[in-house]
Write a protein that binds this DNA or RNA. Structure first.
Lengths: 172, 172
DNA sequence: TATTGTTATACTCTATAACTATA
DNA sequence: TATAGTTATAGAGTATAACAATA
């Protein structure tokens, strides 16, 4: 088995690909060639989206044992940090439509992780709380998200991760 | 009607909200209060997602006159920069599932913006090209995306926009 | 009248599987 | 047998509209 660092082996690969490409270029077009980005290269949204998608993919993969998705996780954390608030308030803070939040909360309620109590002053609104089971689940969930952030720090470098975070936080 | 820039009116709004909040704080809990982020504050993905969503929202709003969405735009640019390539190659570069790309391309073909020609060596694959109408449409589309990027530079500051872009580009 | 939560619908995007025609 | 493209289906997320209960 090849025990050299992954970077080294990947470099070999690229060289081998190029050799094959050059050898075959008279016969078939090289389908492994990097495409030109063209005008896409000037769009922040494109690169922002690429990183966001790969971060969410790792999140979902890492959290699979608890079957928790990013939106569910963010709602659990916000209820934990702000117990007793209404759906309207939670939804506004996370920019989740109230219709969507209603169904999402039904899911969390069905799993026994949250409960809705009648709000004190207002018969229309529910006050949201974690159950004991929800608190326990959230502890296990947080253990997994810590692994996710560790992966991110490894991929981005922890300095760049923090720099990115600071830049992005300025637009809450 | 208030014809001042939206930012100006939004600022008025925040000030008014705070005044109301302070006046009523003795009677009712302040529902406009910023919620605590809790553990969400340590997650890069959360802030990444927030900016990405607002950038895409502005893109879709700005491009509404041409009815073009981000994925369609990225495909048009990639075909422009790499005419004659196959769907498989374009899809891989943009990380779009071939099933999804097939339908997306049908839409662009139906609008007369792209065409698929039989590929030279391989009867299975199509070679993708912009039509003249597609080139003309793309010119108008680019004029709109320039407005979108100008908005971004205004919101983020053009220095921060470039800094962010450089940071994100390192992970293509 | 306005707001809170709910259900329902439609559309986009993602993820699969199955199919065809070519290779 | 593998690959390119297609169709179909299911789920998540977004955006609306309409409704009941309450303010």
């Amino acid at each position: 088995m090849d025990t050299r660092p992954k970077r080294q082996r990947a470099a070999d690969h690229r060289v081998a690909d190029r050799r094959v490409a050059e050898r075959e270029s008279a016969l078939a077009p090289d389908q492994t060639e990097r495409l030109k980005l063209g005008a896409l290269d000037g769009h922040l949204g494109y690169f922002l989206r690429r990183l966001q998608v790969s971060v969410f993919k790792d999140f979902i993969r890492t959290l699979a044992p608890m079957d928790v998705r990013p939106a569910q996780y963010s709602v659990l954390l916000l209820i934990e940090a702000n117990p007793g608030r209404s759906q309207a308030v939670i939804g506004q803070a996370l920019d989740i439509e109230r219709a969507r939040l209603a169904r999402l909360l039904h899911g969390l309620e069905g799993r026994g992780w949250i409960e809705r109590r009648a709000a004190d002053g207002d018969g229309r609104s529910h006050s949201l709380h974690l159950t004991r089971a929800g608190e326990k689940a959230l502890m296990r969930i947080k253990a997994l998200t810590a692994r996710h952030e560790a992966w991110l720090a490894e991929v981005l470098g922890s300095k760049r991760r923090l720099l990115l975070m600071d830049l992005l936080k300025e637009f809450g």
